[in-house]
């Protein structure tokens, strides 16, 4: 955490809840930086999270109303709070296992209804807090505590999922793209409607050590190499594209942007 952002933390919060090398601390910093640059008042905001490592980003750390809900139910709780108090800037911050697995139904229906929520999904591709079991975002072939022989299933593309469900805005960035990510968070906080940002965040403790990432920096380097924009993707050969991850504001109905199509063009 940058020192100047400490004023957004609840008094008494002094240590990070995250493991060494976890990307969630970077994301925590970026979210607060976006809020700081927008000069938003935390008293006008509500942060809702579910269960899992990412749910600890706002709760209890942010000095705002934070609601730590049941596993999977963050979006449903946020929808209720927002319905009662539409003035609240309501942000859901939770993980891939929480939002896309046990809570997947709430995610697609909030997207379909264009519920006025900012949903930030910290995707570390695994269930970190319970010890590294395969999630619906775990890459095919990856080793986890429940897929010792390699994950037999393909992962969700979370942005495609919410776009398919009707989301007007979907972006994907890694924590290794902090400035672009911060701008996307500011953009979503600036409009009314459902905005979804998938944030790729490394989990060295549960994912990296099982999948041949020798060091924390290997995971960050890997994200830096693999995360490309649509323009960069276009310049790559078919083989090169295979292990790259398309990042950017992938879908934005308000501004008629669609990077998914750009990348394919």
């Amino acid at each position: 955490m940058a020192r100047d952002l400490n004023r957004y933390l609840r008094p008494g919060v002094s240590t990070t809840p995250f493991c060494p090398g976890c990307g969630h601390g970077i994301l925590m910093n970026i979210i607060l930086r976006a809020i700081d640059e927008l000069r938003l008042n935390l008293d006008d905001m509500l942060f809702v999270s579910g269960i899992g490592c990412a749910a600890w980003i706002p709760s209890p750390n942010f000095n705002a109303d934070t609601l730590h809900t049941l596993h999977g139910r963050a979006i449903a709780f946020a929808t209720g709070a927002k319905a009662f108090n539409p003035q609240l800037k309501t942000m859901v911050i939770s993980g891939d296992g929480d939002l896309a697995s046990i809570g997947g139904n709430h995610l697609i229906h909030a997207a379909r209804r264009d519920t006025d929520l900012t949903v930030i999904c910290a995707n570390n591709m695994i269930y970190g807090m319970t010890g590294g079991q395969a999630a619906p975002t775990t890459p095919a072939g990856a080793i986890s505590a429940t897929t010792g022989g390699g994950n037999p299933w393909a992962p969700f593309d979370l942005c495609r999922l919410v776009i398919g469900a009707g989301a007007g805005y979907a972006a994907r960035f890694a924590v290794t793209q902090p400035l672009e990510l911060k701008e996307a968070i500011k953009e979503v906080l600036g409009f009314t409607g459902f905005g979804f940002i998938e944030v790729l965040s490394p989990c060295p403790t549960q994912y990296g050590r099982r999948n041949d990432y020798g060091a924390v920096t290997d995971m960050l380097e890997d994200l830096r190499r693999r995360c490309v924009t649509a323009d960069e993707m276009k310049r790559l050969t078919g083989t090169e594209r295979k292990d790259r991850i398309l990042t950017g504001v992938l879908h934005d109905e308000r501004n008629e942007r669609n990077e998914m199509e750009t990348a394919r063009a």
């Binding site: 596993h71 046990i102 269930y127 807090m129 319970t130 010890g131 079991q133 505590a145 429940t146 897929t147 010792g148 022989g149």
Partner: peptide
């Protein structure tokens, strides 16, 4: 199964037994 503390070790061990 689905992971939840403090049960998770049970299904992890079972998944390892299936793998082996």
């Amino acid at each position: 199964a689905y992971p939840i503390t403090p049960q998770t070790h049970i299904i992890e061990t079972l998944s390892e037994m299936v793998d082996r």
